[in-house]
């Protein structure tokens, strides 16, 4: 049973650490759907969230192999428990004449914000789970979409569950 997984990784904030993680996925034929990384409040650590999919034994290998990397401090499969996932999308949409109010309405329904505009287009900012962003694109219609920039998924456990050293 192949399922989508969100894996959070704390790693030493050192040059080359990220390339080891990406290299591991390429080398072992694991798939990466999205990946985000940035330093944490502790500047010696980076936090990386990646989404991947695979059956249970593949995901077990993914987490074990990640843990083997010397610079990886901690690995948590967020999908093991309750969690929040968010992705940011900036999307440039064709918006001319009568389309303009319609686009605005759809953006409102998805709680998006128009953050830039030209006479022919809107740039909409949206956050949410990846499926919501996919649904927005479907609602607008692919033909109207001029450009998409997505951040990849970031995630955190719900409640008291905390990922720290």
């Amino acid at each position: 049973m192949s399922a989508r997984r969100i894996i959070a990784v704390l790693l030493e904030n050192e040059a080359g650490a990220l390339s080891r993680i990406i290299g591991l996925f390429a080398q072992r034929n694991y798939n990466i759907e999205s990946l985000t990384v940035a330093p944490t409040e502790d500047e010696t650590l980076s936090r990386l969230t990646l989404t991947t999919c695979g059956d249970e034994s593949t995901i077990e290998q993914v987490t074990k192999q990640l843990n083997k990397l010397i610079e990886v401090v901690k690995v948590v499969d967020l999908t093991d428990g309750d969690h929040i996932e968010r992705e940011l999308m900036l999307v440039k949409v064709r918006a001319e004449g009568a389309q303009r109010p319609e686009i605005k309405r759809v953006a409102d329904i998805f709680r998006g914000q128009i953050v830039d505009l030209t006479p022919d287009a809107y740039t909409v900012q949206l956050t949410g789970p990846s499926e919501k962003l996919d649904a927005f694109i479907r609602a607008i219609g692919r033909a109207a979409v001029l450009e998409v920039a997505r951040s990849g998924v970031s995630g955190i456990g719900r409640g008291d569950a905390m990922m720290r050293l």
Binding site: S57, E60, Q61, K64, Q65, N67, K68
Partner: peptide, 8 residues
């Protein structure tokens, strides 16, 4: 000694 070798 390597957990990744177990059940691989």
């Amino acid at each position: 000694v390597d957990p990744a070798s177990i059940s691989k």
